Computed example of a mutant assay.
Amino acid sequence: MTFTPPPKTAAWRHADVQTGFEVVYFRPLGDWYRIEGCTTGVEEGRTWIVGYAIDVDSRWITRRAEVTGRWVTGSRRTTLESDGDGHWLVDGAPAPHLDGCFDVDLESSAMTNAFPVHRMRLAVGAASEAPAAYVRSLDLAVERLEQHYARVDGESYDYVSPGDGFSCRLVYDKAGFVLDYPGIAVRAL
């Protein structure tokens, strides 16, 4: 499967679960990409801002993610680093609970669902597990998130997160970025 190059910028409007917006910029770094963005939200009466700079290598494996969060109670920064073989450091400390993860997934971001799709390049009808280093919006806690992707057709994937029982059909554009994430976000640009 071949994707068109990423756009220079993209944006999503949060839907249903939270109110907010995400804006992202893509910058080539040789055959890697730096993805810089910010997402804001109001969820259950709480506001938050999550900013990020994520580097992915030529295989679209997350190699580094710097994430900052801001809430009424204060702010925090966390850094995730990967060796590209599924081993992680979180704020400089080994994170064995993330072993086998190749992607970072920000709870507040529709954009990060592009990483496993780009990395796995599934054929139509194929499916794969895609556990991720999952960063929570309200405190930047880093957890392991079990995920499953199954490619339905050219741009659609069935997505399942078994831990929380969430499932939906994700629709992507030709560049491999989410257009419609039912109940979560809709592409605005």
Rank of each mutant, 00 (worst) to 15 (best):
T4I: 07
P6N: 01
T9V: 04
A11Q: 04
W12N: 10
R13N: 12
A15G: 00
V17C: 03
Q18P: 00
Q18E: 15
Y25W: 10
Y25G: 02
R27N: 06
R27K: 07
G30L: 10
W32C: 09
E36F: 07
C38A: 11
C38S: 10
T40S: 14
G41T: 11
G41E: 09
E43I: 02
E44F: 03
E44P: 00
G45F: 02
G45R: 09
T47A: 15
W48C: 03
I49A: 04
V50C: 07
Y52I: 01
Y52H: 15
V56P: 00
D57H: 00
D57Q: 10
A65H: 02
A65L: 03
E66S: 13
E66D: 11
E66A: 13
V67L: 05
V67G: 06
V72E: 15
V72W: 10
T73S: 11
T78M: 03
T79G: 03
L80I: 11
L80H: 02
E81P: 00
D83G: 10
D83I: 03
G84A: 01
D85T: 04
G86I: 08
H87S: 09
W88C: 06
L89Y: 00
L89W: 13
P94N: 08
P96R: 05
H97I: 05
G100S: 07
G100N: 06
G100I: 09
F102L: 15
D103F: 05
V104K: 11
D105A: 06
A110R: 12
A110Q: 12
A110S: 14
M111A: 06
N113C: 04
N113T: 12
A114D: 09
V117T: 03
V117D: 01
R119S: 11
R121Y: 00
A123H: 08
A123D: 15
A123R: 14
A126E: 15
S128V: 13
S128R: 15
E129M: 01
P131K: 04
Y134M: 11
Y134Q: 08
V135H: 04
R136H: 05
R136S: 09
D139N: 15
D139K: 02
A141D: 08
A141C: 12
V142E: 11
L145Y: 01
E146Y: 12
E146Q: 08
Y149K: 11
V152S: 09
D153N: 14
S156Q: 14
Y159L: 02
V160Y: 11
V160C: 02
S161I: 14
D164E: 15
G165Y: 06
L170A: 03
L170C: 11
L170Y: 15
V171N: 12
Y172V: 07
Y172R: 05
D173S: 08
K174E: 15
K174G: 07
K174L: 14
A175D: 04
D180Y: 09
D180N: 12
P182Q: 10
G183W: 09
G183H: 14
R187M: 10
A188I: 01
A188V: 05
A188F: 08
A188S: 08
